[in-house]
Measured scan of single mutants.
Amino acid sequence: LQLFIKTLTGKTFTVEMEPSDTIENLKAKIQDKEGIPPDQQRLIFAGKQLEDGRTLSDYNIQKESTLHLVL
């Protein structure tokens, strides 16, 4: 599923993930694309901070959802 990642600077980029992927996987993918170390990434969806060990489906993140990346 394609997700939109929006940064505080207003930049938006996309990543391609599976619902079974963990937040950790997502942070690694963001590191590949943007060079931001996972330990500096905080991801927010629907007002909640996402925890590394959980999956996208745990948070009911669907295709074309927008996640906010806070550094």
Rank of each mutant, 00 (worst) to 15 (best):
T7V: 08
L71F: 10
I30M: 02
L56P: 03
E51Y: 05
L26K: 00
L3G: 00
T22M: 07
Q49Y: 08
Q49S: 07
R54Q: 13
L43Q: 00
I61L: 06
L8G: 15
I23V: 12
K33D: 04
D21C: 03
F4G: 03
Y59E: 03
F4W: 10
S20F: 10
F4C: 04
H68T: 08
T14V: 12
F45R: 03
L50T: 03
Q41V: 08
T12M: 09
L8K: 09
D32F: 10
F45Y: 10
S20T: 15
A46D: 09
I23M: 03
T14W: 08
R54N: 11
E24N: 10
F45K: 02
S65W: 04
E34N: 07
T12P: 05
K29I: 13
K33R: 10
T7R: 12
E51M: 14
L43H: 01
G10L: 05
T9C: 05
D39A: 12
L3Y: 04
I61V: 07
K33W: 09
V15W: 02
F4Q: 10
I44P: 00
T7M: 09
D39R: 14
N60Q: 14
K27D: 00
T55K: 08
K6M: 12
S65P: 03
N60S: 14
E64P: 05
V70T: 07
P37Y: 06
S20E: 09
T7Q: 09
G10I: 03
S65N: 15
Q62P: 11
G10A: 05
T66I: 09
L69M: 06
T14K: 11
F4S: 08
S57P: 03
Q49G: 06
I36Q: 03
R42F: 14
L3K: 00
Q41I: 13
P37H: 13
R54P: 04
A46M: 10
Q2N: 09
S20C: 05
A28D: 14
L56F: 07
T14E: 10
T22E: 03
S65T: 11
Q40H: 10
G35M: 06
D21M: 11
I61S: 02
T14D: 06
L50M: 11
E16K: 12
S65G: 06
L8T: 11
F13E: 01
L71R: 10
T66F: 09
D52G: 12
D32P: 02
D52A: 07
Q31I: 02
I44D: 04
K27H: 02
I23F: 03
Q40V: 07
E51Q: 11
L26H: 00
E24Y: 15
K6F: 13
L8M: 13
G35W: 04
K33C: 04
L43S: 00
F4V: 11
E34H: 15
Q31K: 08
E16V: 12
G53N: 13
I44M: 12
G10H: 08
F4K: 11
L1D: 05
I44L: 09
I5T: 00
V70H: 07
N60M: 10
T9Q: 07
K48T: 08
L56R: 01
L1P: 04
L67Y: 03
P38I: 09
Q40W: 08
M17L: 15
T9I: 11
F13A: 02
D58H: 12
E16T: 09
T9F: 11
L50I: 05
A28L: 13
L8D: 14
F13S: 02
E24V: 15
Q31S: 08
Q2D: 07
K6T: 08
L8S: 14
F13Y: 07
K63E: 08
A28E: 08
T12S: 11
D32I: 15
T14S: 15
L67M: 04
K27Y: 03
P38Y: 10
M17W: 13
P37E: 08
Q41L: 05
I23N: 01
D58R: 02
P38K: 12
K29P: 00
K6D: 05
I44N: 05
Q62A: 14
D52W: 03
D39F: 10
L71T: 14
E64L: 13
P38Q: 10
E18S: 08
F45G: 02
I5N: 00
L43G: 00
I44H: 13
K29T: 08
G10E: 05
T7P: 12
V70I: 15
I23K: 00
E16F: 15
T7K: 12
F13H: 03
K27V: 02
L56S: 01
S57W: 11
A46S: 11
E51W: 04
T66Q: 06
G47R: 04
I36M: 06
I30S: 00
E51D: 15
K63Y: 12
K29N: 05
Y59N: 02
L71E: 08
K63V: 09
L56M: 06
L71D: 14
G10W: 04
P37T: 09
D52Q: 05
I44K: 05
D39G: 07
Y59Q: 03
A28T: 12
G53H: 09
F13N: 01
L50P: 01
E16Y: 15
E18A: 14
T9L: 10
Y59V: 03
N60Y: 12
D58Y: 13
Q41R: 01
T22P: 06
K29R: 08
G35L: 05
I5M: 02
A28Q: 15
I23L: 05
S20P: 04
N60F: 07
K27W: 03
I44T: 06
V70W: 14
I30G: 00
T7C: 04
E24I: 09
V15C: 03
T12I: 09
P19K: 07
T12H: 11
S57Q: 15
T14A: 08
T9R: 13
E34T: 14
E64I: 05
K63I: 13
I23A: 02
G53A: 09
T22Q: 05
K11P: 07
S20D: 15
F4P: 02
Q2H: 09
D39M: 14
E16C: 04
A28Y: 10
A28P: 01
Q40R: 08
G10V: 03
N25V: 14
I23Y: 02
P38N: 12
K11G: 08
S57N: 15
V70M: 07
E64K: 07
F4Y: 15
A28V: 13
T22N: 05
I30C: 02
Q62I: 14
L69C: 02
V70L: 13
R54W: 15
Q31V: 04
Y59F: 03
T7S: 07
L56C: 03
L1K: 04
D52I: 06
Q40M: 15
F13Q: 02
L67G: 02
Q31D: 06
K48Y: 07
T7H: 14
E18Q: 10
G47N: 15
K27F: 02
E34Y: 08
Q31C: 05
P19E: 15
D21W: 04
I30H: 00
F4L: 13
A46Q: 08
D52Y: 05
D32R: 14
D39S: 08
Q41F: 09
G35F: 04
T55S: 09
I36R: 03
F45C: 03
L67A: 03
D32T: 08
N25T: 09
P38L: 14
E51N: 06
G47K: 04
S20N: 15
V15N: 00
S20M: 11
K33Y: 09
I36D: 02
K6N: 08
N60G: 09
I36K: 02
S65F: 07
R54T: 09
G53D: 07
G10T: 03
E24L: 14
Q41H: 03
D32A: 14
L71G: 07
Q31A: 14
V70D: 06
I61W: 03
A46G: 11
G10C: 03
